[in-house]
Computed example of a mutant assay.
Amino acid sequence: MRAWVRRRCGPPDSVMELDTLPTPPVPTGQSPDVLIRVSHVSLQYSTEMLIRMIPSMPFTGPWIPEIELSGEVVAAGAGAPSELRDPGTPVVAFQTMFSVIFMGHGTMAEYIRLSGSQVTRIDAAIDMAPASGISGSGSTALKMIRTAGVRDGHTVLINGASGSVGSFLVQLCRLRGAKVVGVASGANEAMVRDLGVNEFIDYRSHDSLPAFLTHQYGGKPFDCILDCVGSQAIFVQSPAYLKPEGMVVNIGTLEGVGATARNVLFNRYLPTWLGGVPRQYVMFNTKPTTDDAVYVARLVQEGHMRVPVDSVFDMQDAVRAYKRIATKRARGKVVVKVRSD
């Protein structure tokens, strides 16, 4: 089978290779595993950073990137869930971050074998390209709104509303009855408004976004801020436009991994009498779950949500897809079409 592999750290265009590897064996007996023919892979911004930074572990073989996919069942063991045992069943699935980071067992390959607990059946009518983003981005967005306790009547600020997770957040918050203020580039305004935001802010139109938020929303502060970008300034100045009981939930690393790690420590543990910000701060990376994938897939199937796709690249053009991710200007998911037919 064909698979994209990385054998050393560096920029994707320098270190990624399209290689031929053995196809995983077919599950037999009481195995709970499912062998999947991969259709599409949805790229993560964090993976582009991992390719550059994480060294290959000894004795692990070629390092294959990415964590989520759409595809169809080739075969399944008798221990797999019954709804996944029929060949040709359309599915979405995810690989664990541990398996990707430390073992290199990612999803950017024509076939992958996964535990049935990481695989979700979907309706055959769902387009495979956007479906590939359901497990990872959908799970992250759900955990963010659950952590923040978003509910009917809340006013929520979403920073990075045009991105892969941000586009899920806009729709999920609106489904919960919240008022949504979306922040993105003005070039993405039409897309973000189409997702359902009540108000739109073009961050490029303001020398200081926190100063604008203070002026515009100081008298009607937000119940929570969901930050997909990782703006430290938004949190530091949040008491001016975030309710005292509100929280900032962040998944972004705009300022780099090292600076973000430092900010997390200060934001969570520095007491106010030493200059800490008197607002709750949460940052996490969350693993996908099949329950979340089932929930989001049902919303998509019923027409309550859609998965915006920025662009789809053929398998041989995956390096170009990573270049698109690296621009931080993608409008929704950047997807690689793995299957050639």
Score class of each variant (00 low, 15 high):
Met1Asp: 07
Met1Glu: 08
Arg2Leu: 12
Arg7Gly: 12
Cys9Ser: 14
Gly10Ala: 05
Pro12Gln: 05
Ser14Tyr: 02
Val15Asn: 02
Val15Gln: 00
Met16Val: 00
Asp19Asn: 04
Thr20Phe: 01
Pro24Lys: 04
Pro27Ile: 09
Thr28Ala: 12
Ser31Lys: 08
Leu35Ala: 06
Ser39Phe: 02
His40Gly: 02
Leu43His: 07
Leu43Phe: 09
Leu43Gly: 04
Gln44Asp: 14
Gln44Leu: 12
Tyr45Lys: 03
Glu48Leu: 08
Met49Asn: 07
Met49Glu: 14
Ile51Phe: 10
Thr60Asp: 00
Thr60Trp: 04
Pro62Leu: 04
Trp63Phe: 03
Ile64Trp: 05
Gly71Met: 10
Ala76Trp: 13
Ala76Leu: 08
Gly79Ile: 09
Pro81Ile: 06
Ser82Cys: 01
Ser82His: 11
Arg85Ile: 00
Thr89Gly: 10
Thr89Ser: 05
Val92Asn: 06
Ala93Phe: 12
Ala93Gly: 05
Ala93Pro: 05
Phe94Gln: 03
Gln95Tyr: 03
Met97Pro: 01
Phe98Lys: 14
Ser99Pro: 01
Met103Cys: 10
Gly116Trp: 11
Gly116Met: 09
Ser117Met: 10
Asp127Ala: 14
Met128Arg: 14
Gly133Asp: 06
Gly138Phe: 03
Ala141Trp: 12
Lys143Tyr: 12
Met144Cys: 08
Met144Gln: 13
Ala148Met: 07
Arg151Ala: 15
Leu157Gln: 12
Gly160Leu: 12
Ala161Met: 06
Gly163Arg: 10
Ser164Ala: 15
Val165Gly: 04
Val165Pro: 10
Ser167Pro: 02
Leu169Val: 12
Lys179Phe: 12
Gly186Glu: 09
Ala187Cys: 00
Asn188Met: 00
Met191Lys: 07
Asp194Tyr: 06
Gly196Arg: 11
Phe200His: 04
Arg204Met: 09
Asp207Leu: 10
Ala211Cys: 00
Phe212Ser: 02
Thr214Cys: 07
His215Lys: 15
Gly218Lys: 08
Gly219Val: 00
Asp227Thr: 06
Gly230Pro: 11
Val236Leu: 11
Gln237Thr: 13
Lys243Met: 12
Gly246Phe: 10
Val248Asp: 11
Val249Glu: 11
Val249Asp: 08
Asn250Ile: 07
Leu254Lys: 15
Glu255Leu: 09
Val257Asn: 01
Val257Pro: 05
Gly258Ser: 13
Thr260Val: 03
Thr260Arg: 13
Thr260Phe: 04
Ala261Tyr: 06
Leu265Trp: 13
Phe266Leu: 15
Asn267Ala: 15
Arg268Met: 14
Arg268Ala: 14
Tyr269Asp: 02
Trp273Thr: 10
Val277Lys: 02
Pro278Ile: 04
Gln280His: 13
Gln280Cys: 01
Thr289Ser: 15
Thr290Arg: 14
Thr290Ala: 14
Thr290Trp: 00
Ala293Gln: 04
Val294His: 13
Val294Lys: 15
Gln301Leu: 03
Gln301Trp: 05
Glu302Val: 04
His304Ile: 02
Arg306Tyr: 14
Arg306Cys: 13
Pro308Ile: 03
Val309Leu: 10
Ser311Glu: 09
Val312Asn: 10
Gln316Arg: 14
Ala318Leu: 13
Arg320Tyr: 01
Arg329Thr: 07
Arg329Val: 02
Val335Asn: 08
Val336Ala: 07
Val336Asn: 09
Arg339Gly: 01
